[in-house]
């Protein structure tokens, strides 16, 4: 009786629901008895956690998917036999004429100890978020490297997450450069670089290091000598072109050029955590 009663309640609910708008129907659909949701795929039972790891393991997913209930259709392996050998003709007398040779040559050397292979990682790096205080044109203070303490102008963020900055070179000697935003203090000072066009070719590839070593074996063992790094003419030209655009924008603000030319330093009684930048 009780079951019947609940069933009737459900039916009445159904009729009531049917009278309603079409859109609201979907929210009551779980109350309907024996309605199959054909054609509608459910949401995935597994999800990927921020680290790139799936939430449920293989075993947990087996029970969640109820694979123990489902019939497994075994995949019939094709019965084609792979040939591992081939027949090679051998010339010369008393050589038998032909020989069976393995397709894949087995290695002549085996390591004495097993080397454990690294598993394939599914982790993906997330795109680096730019600090809110850093926007195009922001004056940054570099904290590390050979240009430590220099004030530079931020141009844009590269795909790798690093910041594209320049002194400008003609003002303080800092060339077009990539810097990590962790090694930078963002100031409140901004240069209006709205009119500046930064060439698209200034990307991560542009700044990639080219090997300075000469190829081995070109002329003996002693040929491998290091050549010093020298700035290419292309880079010089790019720098000059950008500086030409940037310099008038810097000069528009009084004493900004002078500011960029000076290095930042702390004096007595100044603590960076108490300062405003």
């Amino acid at each position: 009786m009780r079951i019947l009663h609940t069933f009737s309640v459900r039916l009445s609910l159904c009729t009531c629901v049917l009278r309603r708008e079409q859109g609201a129907l979907s929210s009551y659909i779980h109350l309907l008895p024996c309605v199959e949701m054909a054609g509608k795929p459910h949401t995935p039972r597994n999800s990927i956690l921020p680290g790139g790891i799936s939430r449920y393991g293989r075993s947990a997913m087996y029970s969640r998917k109820a694979l123990f209930k489902k019939k497994r259709i075994p995949v019939v392996a094709s019965k084609e036999k792979k040939s591992y050998f081939k027949v090679k003709e051998v010339k010369g007398e008393k050589n038998g004429g032909r020989r069976v040779v393995p397709l894949k040559k087995s290695p002549r050397f085996y390591p004495t100890e097993d080397i454990s292979r690294r598993l394939r990682s599914l982790k993906k790096g997330r795109p680096v978020r730019l600090r809110a205080s850093i926007t195009p044109g922001t004056v940054l203070i570099l904290l590390a490297g050979r240009h430590m303490g220099r004030r530079v102008v931020f141009l844009r963020q590269l795909d790798s997450g690093m910041l594209l900055v320049t002194g400008p070179f003609c003002v303080n000697g800092v060339p077009l450069r990539r810097v990590n935003q962790a090694y930078v203090i963002a100031t409140k000072t901004k240069v209006d670089i709205g009119t500046l066009t930064i060439p698209a070719k200034l990307d991560d590839n542009y700044f990639r290091r080219s090997s300075t070593k000469t190829k081995a074996g070109s002329s003996g063992i002693f040929a491998e000598s290091k050549q010093g790094y020298s700035v290419s003419d292309i880079r010089k030209e790019d720098q000059r072109a950008l500086d030409q655009q940037l310099l008038p924008l810097v000069k528009a603000e009084p004493s900004l050029k002078q500011y960029l030319a000076h290095r930042f330093s702390l004096s007595h009684g100044q603590y960076p955590h108490q300062l405003m930048f």
Binding site: V139, I141, R151, T187, K188, T189, S255, L256, Q258, Y259, H262, F264, Q274, L275, M276, F277
Partner: peptide, 11 residues
């Protein structure tokens, strides 16, 4: 003085 930025301090 506390509200001065780096640029202000330089000037």
């Amino acid at each position: 003085r506390k509200t001065l930025t780096d640029f202000h301090r330089f000037k």
